[in-house]
């Protein structure tokens, strides 16, 4: 299960809406081993694409260093789908290297309704999990 603060949940949705129709992406860092997503970090989508995302490599290095220095890890890795459902694509699955992370998908395909779902992706096996907004 993913427990996430309402403020962080809303920050992810706001980012996804702002970058629509391109995919938005980022992380929520938290203390290593805590499973608490606390520090929202919107990342640049270096691809600037409606169908693909990739963290900018230099920004990723900087953010990963910060996490290392503060004994944090990426608790949530999020991105948006802008025309399809909030479910991991084959590409998402094959590129999911963080077995400890909650992979959050937000879909902005319907401007009236947000889809916000969370998954574990381990060895290419996708397991959806409940999301509790607190």
């Amino acid at each position: 299960m993913l427990r996430i603060d309402r403020a962080v949940y809303e920050a992810i949705i706001t980012h996804a809406r702002r970058d629509h129709p391109d995919e938005a992406c980022g992380i929520v860092a938290g203390p290593a081993g805590s499973d608490r997503p606390e520090r929202f970090v919107a990342m640049e989508n270096a691809e600037r694409s409606p169908t693909f995302y990739r963290f900018d490599s230099m920004e990723q290095l900087r953010v990963w260093r910060e996490m290392d220095d503060q004994d944090e890890e990426p608790i949530v890795i999020y991105h948006s789908h802008t025309a399809t459902e909030a479910y991991p694509s084959r590409t998402d699955i094959s590129l999911a290297w963080e077995p400890g992370a909650h992979y959050v998908l937000a879909s902005t395909r319907d401007p009236e309704r947000i889809e916000f779902r969370s998954y574990r992706i381990i060895d290419a096996v996708v397991t959806e999990e409940p999301v509790e907004i607190v």
Binding site: E23, C25, I27, M43, E47, S49, T51, F52, Y53, R54, F55, S57, Q60, L61, W64, I77, H79, H81, T82, A83, T84, P88, S89, R90, T91, D92, S94, L95, A96, W97, A124
Partner: peptide, 16 residues
């Protein structure tokens, strides 16, 4: 660092 990437489209050459 493994790249963090993905998206709704199927990209070629994305084997792990």
């Amino acid at each position: 660092l493994p790249a963090v990437a993905g998206g709704c489209a199927v990209m070629p050459a994305t084997s792990g």
